[in-house]
Amino acid sequence: DESNKPILLPNESQSFERSVQLLDQIPSYDTHKIAVLYVGEGQSNSELAILSNEHGSYRYTEFLTGLGRLIELKDCQPDKVYLGGLDVCGEDGQFTYCWHDDIMQAVFHIATLMPTKDVDKHRCDKKRHLGNDFVSIVYNDSGEDFKLGTIKGQFNFVHVIVTPLDYECNLVSLQCRKDMEGLVDTSVAKIVSDRNLPFVARQMALHANMASQVHHSRSNPTDIYPSKWIARLRHIKRLRQRICEEAAYSNPSLPLVHPPSHSKAPAQTPAEPTPGYEVGQRKRLISSVEDFTE
């Protein structure tokens, strides 16, 4: 099969070098950035008060330690540790928490760990991170309901609301924008112990962030949302095809390698009803078989 044979790379090609550099910018793992907010007593309706908090309760602090690993920003190499735009020179604080497994990295933009500057009256330095995160974990210690939209931002799609209760338990629920209701189930609340709260809140936030990324990708319907490693695979396959075309153009005697095509017509299947918005969006999480067989 010609399409699977190794090909020689061009010795000097600026377009090839640019493509390789672009490939280096696509990590081999999925990345997520999640905002974390603490809401104190009497702050449920005040964005400024929430963003001005420099610490929270003892249970909130224990919750943070379970979310991930504490890292010092100045020691991080952005090409190895995903920071979601946090500055490593102290502009966004000294520490944050991050978490990773074999296929993804997540960083938490924690408002109480970011510096509260006197010259920044409206807390814009914090909002440029927190307001651009799709998902926020809100530790609501106010005793009042927290409403979506209290923290203004164009991309605040989903809130994971943590409400501490007695007996070391917590109520965990989801809020989302109306255009996200087909992807996020907000109907079920959970009672979770303090011990298990970081794991549950983190998983709910990661799932909500993946759904938000799919939702946000609708602005470019021709580019369905893939995982990062599938995006790398697609980029490599496009690069291979372009090299083959350039080689055939410079030397017409060489065969032009095309991806294999299936001449056999697909079997006719009964027509199915058109899937609704929710089903269609969830299918976009699934990769096409052509990603692996071309």
Rank of each mutant, 00 (worst) to 15 (best):
D1V: 12
L8V: 12
Q14Y: 12
Q14R: 10
F16P: 06
R18Y: 10
V20P: 05
V20N: 06
Q21L: 07
D30C: 05
K33A: 13
K33I: 05
A35Y: 02
A35Q: 05
A35I: 02
L37I: 09
L37R: 01
Y38G: 01
V39K: 01
V39R: 00
N45L: 04
S46W: 02
E47L: 02
L48F: 08
L51A: 02
L51I: 06
S52Q: 11
S52G: 08
N53L: 01
E54G: 04
S57E: 01
E62F: 02
L64I: 10
T65Q: 14
G68S: 04
R69E: 15
I71L: 07
E72M: 07
L73P: 15
D75M: 14
D75R: 13
Q77V: 11
P78F: 12
D87T: 04
C89L: 05
C89I: 05
C89H: 08
E91R: 15
G93F: 07
T96Q: 09
T96K: 04
W99E: 04
W99V: 02
D101E: 12
D102L: 04
D102V: 05
Q105E: 13
A106E: 04
A106N: 02
V107W: 08
F108E: 01
T112V: 01
L113Y: 04
P115F: 03
T116N: 15
D118Y: 09
D120S: 11
H122Y: 11
H122S: 14
C124K: 15
K127T: 12
F134T: 02
S136H: 06
S136P: 01
Y139H: 00
Y139K: 00
Y139I: 00
D141R: 00
S142C: 02
S142M: 01
G143I: 01
E144K: 06
E144W: 02
F146D: 01
K147S: 13
G149I: 02
T150C: 07
F155W: 11
V158G: 02
V158S: 02
H159P: 00
V160Q: 00
V162E: 00
L165Q: 05
L165T: 02
D166E: 11
Y167G: 06
E168R: 05
C169T: 10
N170R: 00
N170S: 12
Q175L: 06
Q175A: 13
C176Y: 05
K178I: 09
E181D: 03
L183F: 13
V188W: 10
D194Y: 00
R195H: 09
N196K: 03
N196W: 04
L197T: 09
F199M: 04
V200E: 02
A205C: 01
M210C: 02
Q213V: 06
S217Y: 11
N220S: 07
N220P: 04
T222P: 06
D223V: 06
Y225L: 13
Y225N: 07
S227Q: 08
K228T: 05
W229S: 11
I230H: 06
R232M: 08
R232D: 13
R238E: 15
Q241F: 05
R242E: 14
I243L: 11
A248S: 09
Y249F: 09
P252E: 13
P252D: 12
S253E: 14
L254P: 15
L254R: 13
L254A: 12
P255H: 06
L256D: 15
L256P: 15
V257W: 10
V257R: 12
P259Y: 10
P260C: 12
P260W: 10
S261Q: 09
H262K: 10
S263M: 11
A267R: 07
A267H: 10
A271Q: 11
E272K: 08
G276F: 05
V279R: 13
R282P: 13
R284G: 13
L285Y: 08
S287Y: 04
